[in-house]
């Protein structure tokens, strides 16, 4: 199954503070309650730090958590 573009447009403007490199889309796996989701998130090409912005954490990811928990 194809990967899901999970990040939002504002995330594309982030720069890694440690490496001073623009983040780039990269494959990642989100795991929650025994379910794995192949997604694309923004990541620093040098140090590999992956961005999960507040918007993503409190938006899509929170909605997915509630959905999987049947809330």
């Amino acid at each position: 199954m194809s990967e899901i573009i999970a990040y939002g447009a504002p995330d594309a403007d982030w720069v890694c503070a440690a490496c001073d490199r623009p983040l780039a889309p990269a494959p990642a796996t989100l795991t929650y309650l025994g379910s794995d989701f192949a997604v694309t998130l923004m990541r620093c090409p040098d140090c590999g730090l992956t961005l999960i912005s507040e918007e993503l954490a409190l938006g899509k990811m929170l909605r997915v958590e509630k959905l999987l928990e049947d809330k």
Binding site: M1, I5, A6, Y32, S35, F37, R63, V64, L67, L68
Partner: peptide, 12 residues
């Protein structure tokens, strides 16, 4: 549920 979660991760 996993399908619904994939949809939310993609489309919001």
């Amino acid at each position: 549920k996993e399908l619904a979660a994939r949809i939310v991760l993609s489309d919001g």
